[in-house]
Lab assay of single mutants.
Amino acid sequence: ENVVSAPMPGKVLRVLVRVGDRVRVGQGLLVLEAMKMENEIPSPRDGVVKRILVKEGEIVDTGQPKIELG
C-alpha cells in the first residue's frame, strides 16, 4: 500500500511529516478531526514520504488519498 487514504471524512488539522521523511509503521502521519474528535492517522508500513496530497485545514472524504509512501 503506497497511498494512505482517509478512513473517515473530516478536516486535516495537522500534517506531522514532510516529503523525504522516513516513517515507521504506526508512526503518526497527520491529525484528522472527525465528529469533534482528533484522530492521528498512522503509517501502514515503513517507508519514505514521497508526496503529501492534502493541506492543513482541508476537508477530506472517506477513501481520499492523503499521503504517498515510497
Rank of each mutant, 00 (worst) to 15 (best):
18 R>K: 14
2 N>F: 15
3 V>Y: 14
24 R>D: 06
1 E>M: 14
23 V>K: 01
66 K>F: 15
63 G>H: 09
17 V>H: 02
69 L>I: 13
67 I>Q: 02
67 I>Y: 02
36 K>D: 15
30 L>P: 00
53 L>Q: 03
60 V>R: 01
37 M>D: 07
15 V>A: 00
64 Q>D: 09
24 R>N: 10
53 L>H: 08
62 T>V: 13
17 V>C: 08
34 A>Q: 09
26 G>I: 03
64 Q>F: 06
25 V>F: 12
41 I>M: 05
38 E>T: 11
68 E>R: 06
14 R>N: 04
25 V>P: 07
6 A>Y: 06
21 D>T: 07
58 E>H: 06
7 P>Y: 09
3 V>C: 14
69 L>W: 06
51 R>W: 07
53 L>P: 02
17 V>Q: 00
63 G>V: 04
20 G>T: 03
63 G>R: 07
46 D>A: 11
25 V>R: 14
67 I>C: 06
59 I>H: 12
5 S>H: 13
50 K>G: 05
36 K>F: 13
68 E>G: 04
10 G>S: 05
24 R>W: 10
35 M>S: 11
28 G>S: 13
9 P>H: 11
16 L>F: 05
31 V>F: 04
69 L>S: 01
34 A>Y: 15
54 V>R: 02
6 A>H: 05
32 L>N: 00
59 I>W: 15
47 G>D: 03
3 V>W: 15
25 V>Y: 12
50 K>I: 14
17 V>G: 00
63 G>P: 02
41 I>P: 01
37 M>I: 12
68 E>C: 14
32 L>W: 08
21 D>Q: 14
41 I>S: 01
46 D>S: 10
70 G>L: 13
4 V>H: 04
42 P>N: 10
9 P>F: 10
54 V>L: 02
40 E>L: 15
21 D>H: 06
50 K>S: 10
53 L>K: 03
7 P>A: 12
9 P>C: 11
10 G>H: 03
61 D>A: 14
66 K>G: 15
13 L>S: 05
21 D>R: 03
11 K>P: 01
59 I>S: 10
56 E>Q: 10
3 V>I: 14
23 V>P: 00
58 E>R: 02
43 S>T: 04
54 V>F: 02
14 R>G: 03
19 V>L: 08
12 V>E: 01
4 V>I: 13
30 L>E: 00
40 E>F: 12
32 L>H: 01
39 N>P: 03
1 E>W: 15
29 L>R: 00
8 M>G: 09
43 S>L: 02
61 D>I: 14
12 V>Q: 00
61 D>M: 14
45 R>I: 15
52 I>W: 03
59 I>L: 13
